[in-house]
Structures are given as C-alpha cells and as structure tokens.
C-alpha cells in the first residue's frame, strides 16, 4: 500500500469558507432588531462604565428643598427622588449594579449549569437520572420564591443576592444543556468518534461542546433579563443592594411612595429595567434565529 506521507510539495492555496460564527455575525448584522437591541445595550454598558465621569450631578447629594421635582425641573433633566438626589445621575450609576446583577449570576450559572447538564447528558443512564432529578428538586420551586428564600437565609447583601441568583439559574440552564447534549450524543458523528477510539473527555471537547454551547448560550442570554428583574425584586425587598447605593430595583422601591405625587419620576427606574430586559430578549431571539443553520 502506498504511504500517506507528508509530501514536500509547495504549500497549495486552500479554499476556505467562512466559519460558523462569522456567518452568524453576518446574519445578525442584517437584522435591524438585533442592531437596535445591541446598540441600546452597548449604550447602557458605556454609560455604566463611565458613569462617574458623565453624571450631571452628584448621585449621592441630597437636598431637602428639592425633593420629588418633576421631569425637566431646573437643570435636573429627569427630576429628583424622595431625598432630592438627581434621578438621571442615579439611573446612570445604577446601571452598573443592575447590569452586574443581571449578567454575573447568569454567567456563573451558564458555566456551572452547562457543565452539569453536559455531564448528565453525555453520561446518560443512571448518572443522568440522579443528576437531573436532583436538579429538578431545585427547579420545582418558583424562581422568585427560591431567590427570596435563599437570599433571606443567607442574609442581605450583594454577594448573597448574587449567590442565590446563581443557584436559581443553574437548574434551568442545566436542563437545557442536558437536553441538547442528549440530542447531540445520539448523532452519528459522536458514534463515529467513539468508534475511532476517542475517550469521553476528548469527544465532549471536540464534538459536543461546539454543538451545544451555542443553544445554551442563547437560552442563558434570555435569562439576563429575568436575573435583572429578580435582583431588582430582591433589592426591593431589602435583600440585595442596600441604600444609598443606586440600583434600579431599589430605586423603584424607595420611589413607590411618590407614585401619586410624581408618577413619571417614580416609574423611571422601572422603565430602565424594561428597556434593558427587552433589549436582551430581542438580541437573544435574533441570535437564536441567526444560529439556525436551516435559514
């Protein structure tokens, strides 16, 4: 038989086609909804990053004389809160904690939940049953209730709120990870990889991860909005961020007494939560359809 040797021929030029992710980016770039949502999120991130430099007023500066002023009062563009602090400045600075509480728990849960789900999905059989039924116990609690219960048990504070939100998001992500992994595991290319003598770790690294992380990631991005709302809820209940730190959920809470006197000002933190979460949702929707190879 002829040997399959490395020939010493001059390096030929290989036709290369675009990779999967560049294809996804191309499709996203053609989707006006995705561009809009991404622009809003980018703006929010920039505002959060540079908040101390661009706030028109000191967000912690109270004034008993200028409490609950309406939108456009003097040079307070969005009015003032119940302690006379500039609402625009506080919303800008609040974007930091709110985005942080939205993204970080989901990110950690994405890593841990994917690991658990992929392990269960690839192992199958009894291991799968044990892992997934345990996850189901956590999943059986309504997420709001679980977050409140965990936060309450751990005590108030940002760190504990972060931890409890992470625990809340691990089960749904693990379930999605398990189901996509189970699907991929049944495909012939995984069988072929096993038939070539590869070990489980190599197969997961080369053949499973690339095919499951995308769908899990899309699902996780849709949880960022939920995480922000839950974090706001925890702050609202006094379990997350403590005053006077600005955070949208907490601001919504402290401003609720002003709902009759200054309804527009009181609603603004809620509007910010809404804009952010809907942007994340729209972006993850677009990502989902862009990643669908059949389109």
């Amino acid at each position: 038989m002829t040997t399959l040797n490395a020939g010493a021929a001059p390096a030929p030029v290989y036709e290369r086609s675009a990779g999967f992710w560049s294809g996804v980016l191309k499709k996203l770039a053609r989707d006006p909804v995705a561009i809009g949502a991404a622009a809003v999120l980018l703006a929010l991130v920039l505002i959060a990053l540079f908040a101390p430099l661009i706030t028109p007023h000191d967000p912690y500066q109270t004034s008993l004389l200028k409490r609950l002023r309406p939108i456009g009062f003097e040079n307070f563009l969005l009015g003032t809160d119940e302690l006379g602090r500039d609402l625009l400045s506080r919303l800008m600075l609040g974007a930091r904690l709110s985005l942080f509480m939205g993204i970080v728990p989901v990110l950690i849960a994405f890593v841990l939940g994917s690991a658990i789900g992929i392990l269960a999905g690839y192992a199958g059989g009894l291991a799968n049953t044990l892992i997934m039924r345990t996850i189901d116990v956590l999943y059986a609690f309504p997420s709001v209730l679980l977050a409140i219960a965990l936060s309450g048990a751990l005590g108030a504070g940002i760190g504990n709120a972060l931890l409890s939100l992470t625990i809340v998001f691990i089960p749904p992500i693990a379930r999605v990870a398990e189901s996509v992994t189970t699907q991929v595991r049944g495909r012939d290319f995984v069988e072929a990889a096993r038939a070539s003598g590869a070990g489980a770790f190599t197969i997961v690294r080369v053949h499973v991860l690339g095919n499951v992380l995308g769908p899990i990631f899309v699902y996780a991005t849709s949880l960022i909005a939920v995480s922000m709302i839950l974090a706001s809820g925890l702050s609202f209940l006094g379990l997350g961020v403590r005053p006077p730190e600005p955070e949208w959920g907490l601001m919504l809470n402290t401003l609720r007494t002003a709902i009759y006197t200054q309804p527009w000002v009181a609603a603004l933190p809620g509007v910010m939560i809404f804009i952010t979460s809907i942007s994340f949702n729209l972006l993850s929707d677009s990502l989902r359809s862009a990643m669908d190879v059949k389109n």
Partner: peptide, 19 residues
C-alpha cells in the same frame, strides 16, 4: 477501534457540523 472503522448511512449526521 483503530483497526476497525465504520461508515454510517446518514452522511450528514455522521459529520460534525462545527468541524
């Protein structure tokens, strides 16, 4: 498994779409 190899019926399913 190095000395025995297999070709499957479904040509699409037996290739990793990400490789």
């Amino acid at each position: 498994r190095r000395q025995v190899q297999m070709v499957f019926q479904d040509s699409y399913s037996s290739l990793n779409p990400r490789l």
